[in-house]
Amino acid sequence: MKINRDLQNSILKILSNVYPNNIHREEWLPLLSVAGDKDTLVANLLYLEEHKLLTSGITRCVNDYMINLGQLRITNRGLDFLLNDGGVNAILGIETD
C-alpha cells in the first residue's frame, strides 16, 4: 500500500513550517527520500488533498504527474489537524450565555 502515515505527517509538518509561504526545493527534497518513489509521494499528496488538508499542485500529464511546488500549500484544515485543537471553528462554535 502506498499510503504512509509517517510520510503524510512529514508533508504536513514541512508545509506548516513554511506557511504561509511556498515550499522551496531544499525543503522538498527530504520528502522525496522519505517517500522512496514518486508514485508513493503523489498518492499521499492526493490523499491529503482529498481530505482538504493541503492543495497538492498536482496535474496529470499523459502517464505521469507534475507537482507544482508554487501551488503546494497546507490548508487551514491541515493546520488545525496538526494543532489538534479543533481550530477556529471550535472556538466560533462555542455558545455563551
Rank of each mutant, 00 (worst) to 15 (best):
G36Q: 07
N9E: 15
I74S: 03
A90R: 10
L82N: 04
I67F: 01
N76A: 11
H51P: 00
S10H: 14
G87M: 02
G86I: 00
I14L: 15
L69P: 10
N44A: 04
N17E: 15
H24Y: 14
F81Y: 12
T55K: 08
R77M: 06
E26L: 12
K38V: 07
D80K: 00
V34K: 14
I74T: 02
E26K: 14
S33R: 15
K2P: 10
L54I: 05
E26G: 10
I58D: 02
L53Y: 05
L7Y: 04
N63A: 12
S16N: 13
L92Q: 11
N84F: 00
N44S: 03
V18H: 11
L82Y: 05
T59F: 06
A35C: 09
G93M: 05
D6V: 15
N21F: 13
V62C: 05
L7Q: 05
T59L: 07
T96V: 13
G86V: 01
L82T: 06
R77K: 13
T55D: 09
V18R: 12
N4S: 12
G78P: 03
N22K: 14
L45Q: 00
V18W: 13
M1T: 10
V34P: 06
T96S: 13
D39A: 10
L53P: 00
I3S: 11
L92V: 06
L53N: 01
K52D: 08
E27V: 10
C61I: 11
I3T: 10
D39P: 03
R5P: 14
L46Y: 03
L45N: 01
H51I: 06
A90M: 07
Y47K: 09
N84L: 01
A35K: 04
T75I: 06
I11A: 10
T40E: 07
K52S: 10
D64P: 01
K2G: 09
R25W: 14
I74P: 03
R5W: 08
N44T: 01
D85G: 03
L69Y: 09
N17P: 09
L41W: 04
T75A: 02
L41G: 02
I67S: 01
N22D: 15
D80R: 00
D97Q: 04
R77C: 09
E27I: 08
L7R: 05
R25K: 15
R5K: 14
S10D: 14
Y65D: 07
P30M: 11
I74A: 04
L53C: 01
N89K: 05
L46D: 01
N89E: 08
L12D: 04
S10L: 14
T96W: 09
N4T: 04
S56T: 05
F81L: 06
F81E: 02
L46M: 06
I11Y: 07
V62N: 10
D6C: 13
L82M: 10
Q8G: 13
